[in-house]
Simulated scan of single mutants.
Amino acid sequence: MLPANVTLQYMREGTKQNVRVKLSLDATVRQVIADLVRDLGLPSTDSDGEPCTYELTYQRQTLSDEARLFEVGVQENAILQLVAVNPNATRSGMALSANVLSRLGGKGSNEPLPIRAELLSRTGRAFPLRHTRALLGRADPALGYPPEALDADLTPLDPERTVSRPHALIVYSDGRFTIRDLYSQRGVLVNGVRIPVNGAYPLDDGDWLQLGEVELQFRCPR
């Protein structure tokens, strides 16, 4: 079990609710929804006796029922929404807007990177970093990670699918770069050393990164 405390947003009798709950990151979305509906005492049918269907959303994306939470980047202090999608339940006020606050660990920031930096593969392929928060991973449109959602889509370098969909985040702040492991399955190594999960680890020009079986050199000449 991989426990994590998250904030859950949902609607009860037309009022938005925010609660802190502990979830298992290795549970499937289907399991999590069933447990939440039961524990929160949410209706399983609407006023007409029709079944209520719920979805779990994260980072403005509806999560696949069979995905495990860690696979889609959910981590400690994440913000999730439990949404009722049955039309009658929606009219009765059970639905919640899928707006998600931007947070660290989500899609990269739109703020332009003020200096030049890139990732270089051993084969010479370059991934320019254009934003102050750059999301690295493997594209999977079915689970809400189309190539354009990633600042560095490593799919072409990862035929064995060893890179997680959201795998790591490179952040530029206060004149320095750091990298975070977003609870990836294979971890993140910097110069051969595995970094702590979700901890900001400093990056310097020339450092070698390993995400799954993919090796990249971080370049940021000053």
Rank of each mutant, 00 (worst) to 15 (best):
88 N>Q: 13
88 N>W: 02
88 N>K: 15
90 T>D: 03
92 S>E: 14
92 S>N: 08
94 M>C: 03
94 M>P: 02
95 A>N: 01
95 A>G: 02
98 A>Q: 04
99 N>W: 10
99 N>V: 05
100 V>Y: 04
102 S>L: 11
102 S>P: 08
103 R>E: 12
104 L>K: 13
104 L>W: 03
106 G>Y: 01
108 G>C: 01
110 N>I: 11
111 E>F: 09
111 E>G: 04
112 P>Q: 07
112 P>N: 09
113 L>W: 01
113 L>R: 01
113 L>G: 02
114 P>M: 00
114 P>L: 02
114 P>Y: 01
116 R>T: 12
117 A>H: 11
118 E>N: 05
118 E>G: 05
119 L>F: 13
120 L>Y: 00
121 S>N: 04
122 R>G: 14
122 R>L: 15
123 T>Q: 14
124 G>K: 07
124 G>R: 08
126 A>H: 12
128 P>N: 12
129 L>F: 09
131 H>N: 15
131 H>E: 10
133 R>G: 09
134 A>T: 15
135 L>T: 03
137 G>K: 04
137 G>L: 02
137 G>Y: 00
138 R>F: 05
142 A>K: 13
142 A>W: 06
142 A>C: 03
144 G>E: 08
144 G>M: 09
147 P>I: 06
148 E>L: 08
148 E>D: 14
150 L>I: 09
150 L>F: 07
150 L>C: 06
151 D>H: 14
153 D>I: 02
154 L>Q: 02
154 L>A: 03
155 T>C: 07
156 P>M: 08
159 P>R: 12
163 V>P: 00
164 S>G: 15
168 A>T: 11
168 A>P: 04
169 L>Y: 06
169 L>D: 02
169 L>Q: 15
170 I>V: 15
171 V>M: 03
171 V>R: 04
171 V>F: 01
171 V>G: 00
172 Y>S: 06
172 Y>H: 15
172 Y>M: 09
174 D>P: 00
174 D>F: 09
175 G>L: 06
175 G>D: 06
176 R>G: 06
177 F>K: 06
177 F>P: 01
177 F>A: 01
177 F>E: 01
180 R>G: 00
181 D>V: 08
181 D>F: 03
181 D>R: 04
182 L>Q: 06
182 L>I: 11
183 Y>V: 14
183 Y>W: 15
184 S>M: 13
184 S>A: 15
185 Q>S: 13
185 Q>N: 12
187 G>A: 12
